[in-house]
Simulated scan of single mutants.
Amino acid sequence: MSKPAYVYVIYVHGTPQELYRALTDPEYVAAYMGGTGPRSDWQVGSPVDWKMDPNGAFHDYGQRVLVAEPGKLLSYTWHPLQPEHRTIVGIESDEEFAAAATERSQVTFTLEEAEEPSAGSKLTIVHDGFDSPQSKMLRAVSLGWTMILCELKTVVERGGPQAARPS
């Protein structure tokens, strides 16, 4: 039996190369993640540091790049729950947090041209490896990734992080 996963597909008017850049370029990431998000050199085996607070620092939570194929595929391990996530995901007891903090997962972005050329590109995210359908991290990433990818779409379709927002 396979482990539970979050899967989401979004179509973006941009090329797979533009989507890959949006996933890996610090300016893009800051634009659609509100100054938070991942940072790496995006080489296989490299750390993926994460900034949880726009005014905070980047931290190494043990995430590592698994696959990095520009314009095609990006995959990295995901961090276990951290103390700062406890309130966000709704964990009250120390026992529940200790159990939830051992869970490891990974996220994979597949980038390809859309089946219909006028649709742009197809971005598929699979965040998998969760221990159970009741996983606190699965619940958190399911909401988080949906919002993040909608913002990514907006940034890419407006022409990048420097493009002016319409008034």
Rank of each mutant, 00 (worst) to 15 (best):
K72R: 14
G160L: 11
L81A: 09
D41W: 01
P47S: 13
L111W: 01
L19T: 03
L111G: 01
P54H: 04
T102N: 11
L81M: 11
M1C: 08
S93W: 02
C150A: 15
R21I: 01
V65I: 09
M137C: 07
E151Y: 15
P4C: 00
S167R: 14
E27N: 14
V7E: 09
V141W: 14
P26M: 02
E69K: 15
M52Q: 03
L149N: 12
V48N: 08
Y32V: 08
S135K: 03
V7I: 12
R64E: 08
H79E: 15
S105I: 00
D94R: 09
K153F: 06
G62E: 12
P117D: 13
I148N: 15
T146E: 14
V9M: 07
E151H: 15
R21M: 05
D53R: 02
V12T: 05
P161N: 05
T102Y: 09
E84T: 10
M137H: 15
T102F: 08
E115W: 03
L74H: 04
P47W: 12
L74S: 02
T108L: 07
P38W: 15
V65H: 03
M1D: 11
P4I: 00
K153D: 10
L149V: 08
L152H: 13
I148D: 13
G45F: 04
V89C: 04
E113W: 00
K136G: 01
L74W: 07
Y6A: 10
A22N: 04
Q162H: 14
L143N: 13
E84K: 13
Q17I: 06
M137R: 11
A31K: 08
W145S: 09
E96V: 05
R139C: 02
G35N: 05
K72S: 11
L81G: 10
Y32K: 02
Y20F: 14
G71L: 12
A22C: 05
T110K: 05
D53K: 01
Y20M: 04
R21Y: 04
A101H: 03
V29I: 10
S40V: 03
M147W: 09
R165Y: 06
S167E: 14
V141L: 11
E92L: 10
K3C: 07
K3Y: 10
G37T: 01
E95D: 12
G160P: 08
P83T: 11
A140C: 12
S118R: 15
S2T: 15
A22H: 05
E96W: 04
M137E: 06
S93C: 10
P16L: 10
R158P: 06
G35D: 01
A163E: 11
T146S: 15
K72L: 08
